[in-house]
Design a protein around this nucleic acid. Structure first.
Lengths: 117, 117
DNA sequence: TACTAACATCGTTTATCGACGATAAACGAA
DNA sequence: TTCGTTTATCGTCGATAAACGATGTTAGTA
């Protein structure tokens, strides 16, 4: 209840995490991340071939990933050098880590509801 | 290139991961997850108060989380007993772990583009 | 200058999301 | 059975997302 002090801070955190999740909320963007993961070095428009969508669509997906801080692009000659930015995924990863830890520790079975009150 | 053998399997994986991410792609749902995380035991409609949205809206968010396997609900009296389902988050967590690991190891700086070809 | 290559952006169409109020469904209790 | 409580579903709206082709931008090269 209330807790107006930490509320705004936590709310901002929730928006941040949600934004990262939203950036990953599309198979094509997951594929892009995996593709960048498989190639430690940068690539140009090879992504377009890999994804199998129109160039403009892929460009839009890359823009979304960049906006969320998941990937970064460096201008390199005519091409653009994309690479993963792990730090951008950290907020989401931390939440998942917390859930997985707690899940292993405390929630063995479905837990017991306190029908009390 | 090609790789038509594993393509369908990987494509299904990408859809799975994207679906989990989509379930988390909203601040209200992140808040729900955090709320369930803070209370190891189950809760009823306390979530509605916490979130500050209409009951029907919260119910819809819970439906999305359930559909993605992120939370599970057990019927308990008139209430429904919600709890986190860490296993549902595993596919996404694994991808993030891979990215973070690789990011620490190999991608010290922005990596070097091979303008070759 | 003109041409080409590699991405980005624009504009449009269609689909999905998010929120709400209203209503239904389930069920224990009176 | 009737009532009240809790959750789910329905219908609708505006907003956002996704996809594409067409066009714009930038810069190297002839």
């Amino acid at each position: 209840m209330s807790a107006s002090t930490t509320n705004s801070i936590e709310a901002a955190e929730e928006v941040t995490v949600a934004n990262v999740a939203r950036a990953l909320a599309h198979p094509a963007r997951i594929r892009i991340v995996r593709f960048l993961l498989s190639r430690k070095n940068c690539i140009g428009g090879d992504i377009v071939e890999e994804i199998g969508l129109a160039q403009s669509t892929v460009s839009e997906h890359l823009r979304i990933l960049k906006a969320a801080g998941v990937v970064s692009g460096e201008i390199e000659r005519p091409r653009i050098c994309y690479s993963l930015n792990p730090a951008g995924l950290a907020p989401l990863a931390e939440l998942l880590r917390e859930v997985l830890e707690t899940g292993d520790e405390a929630r063995t079975d479905h837990a017991q509801c306190e029908p009390g009150s």
